[in-house]
């Protein structure tokens, strides 16, 4: 069985509304970095909340390491195992001192004080915010606050972290800080599910899942998915800029062996073509 598996899940926020998710299935293996794409209202955030038992499916089941999220006795085991980082860093921090905020999760789990101390220090070091441990959150930049929020989740020692558009409210430098923190977590073997609007972030993933209308539209490696430019365009989704350029050049008769995903690859291909 996969680490996380959602089987034929349907979900709607109220009976009158139509289903946000409709017969949705998803499998995520341990250590994977999965990016979840799709435009607003396609059910991405709902998926995030279904994975950590914040929401329960109307139909179908979600298993996390074999634990059914509908089992109330396991709710907190699942939530400490699947961390969820939300969009607005300001609304995720609870305490007025960084280190106390990071301690909030482990404190809720009833862990011994010495162990909490150890975890807080480790988590803050992992996101590079250890020097700020006694600062107040409102004095930090957006990127720093979001890193503190990540540390707060990390201190619960989850094996998977779900990021729900973690960079949507940040400036470009904050976005970069958070993305490099996410990548270093992936290197430590933590499973990452990244929900995002930014294609250049999705490119970093092992696997990309594109959602539309509560269903999986297409999934595969970034290169496979972003090669399907016409399909994505039809669903009014973007592709990375480099891919877009290559796609248009192909339309104009230039031959590319494979789709470039970032600027470096694109330059390399163009150099080849120009020679």
């Amino acid at each position: 069985m996969s680490f996380i598996s959602a089987e034929n899940v349907s979900f709607s926020y109220s009976e009158a509304n139509k289903n946000v998710l409709d017969d949705f299935s998803l499998k995520i293996e341990k250590g994977e970095f999965v990016a979840l794409l799709g435009h607003n209202g396609c059910g991405k955030s709902t998926v995030a909340k279904l994975l950590n038992a914040m929401l329960l499916p109307n139909d179908g089941v979600v298993y996390v390491e074999g634990m059914n999220t509908a089992d109330e006795e396991l709710t907190y085991d699942i939530r400490s195992n699947i961390g969820l980082v939300l969009q607005n860093p300001d609304n995720q921090l609870v305490a007025s001192i960084i280190e106390e905020d990071v301690a909030f999760g482990p404190e809720n789990l009833g862990i011994e004080p010495e162990e909490i101390r150890k975890r807080v220090d480790e988590s803050l070091k992992a996101v590079g915010m250890y020097e700020y441990r006694t600062h107040a959150p409102h004095k930090l930049s957006g990127g720093q606050k979001q890193r503190v929020a990540i540390a707060g989740i990390l201190a619960m020692r989850p094996s998977c972290i779900v990021f729900d558009e973690p960079t949507a409210m940040l400036d470009p430098s904050g976005r970069e800080e958070v993305m490099s923190a996410i990548q270093s977590l992936k290197e430590q073997g933590i499973t990452i599910v990244l929900i995002t609007h930014y294609m250049n972030e999705a490119v970093l993933a092992d696997r990309v899942i594109v959602m539309d209308g509560g269903k999986v539209l297409i999934e595969g490696t970034p290169r496979e998915v972003f090669s399907e430019v016409p399909l994505l365009k039809r669903h009014s989704l973007d592709v990375p800029q480099a891919t877009e350029l290559a796609y248009r050049l192909i339309g104009a008769g230039v031959r590319f062996t494979k789709m470039p995903l970032n600027a470096e690859e694109c330059v390399e291909f163009l150099e080849g073509v120009l020679k």
Partner: peptide
Amino acid sequence: CRCYRGGDGRTRMK
């Protein structure tokens, strides 16, 4: 999401 469930069973770092 951070497992808050009131004061019961909660410990403190400091």
